[in-house]
Amino acid sequence: MRQEGSAVRIGARSRIKSPWLFHLNTGSCNGCDIEIVASLAPRYDAERLGCVLVGSPRHADVILVTGPVTRQMLPRVIRVYEQLPEPKSLVAVGTCAASGAPFIGSGVIEGPLDGIIPVDAYVLGCPPRPEAIVRGIVTAVRRRFS
């Protein structure tokens, strides 16, 4: 019994320490996307917290969704989210993903994101600064995985 407890603790701690990111653009203007990339570049270096940008959703723990979720990306958002192995977490990066602004009112926007899939952390800003994105990832991971 005790052993199982410690195994769970090790699992939780390692999950917090190694969030692998998958980036999904759902109609973003590139602003948030380049800030996500900038957060991995030397000045902000998210890898020191264990964050690695991976290319396959099967490898990832956290999805970073940018953009207001366009009509054509909607099924793909759901599909990519389902492809992630459990446990998983989701961060809405940018005001678009969080609320749809300034595209609210457009006929081809299905967002905001939290009406579609569960969101663990919202990072607001247009675009948010890299520090904020890193903070958002850490918040989401702590909330979901511990």
Binding site: R13, S14, R15, S18, D61
Partner: peptide, 8 residues
Amino acid sequence: YDFAKLLN
């Protein structure tokens, strides 16, 4: 950490 996480 990566190894332990993936195992879990």
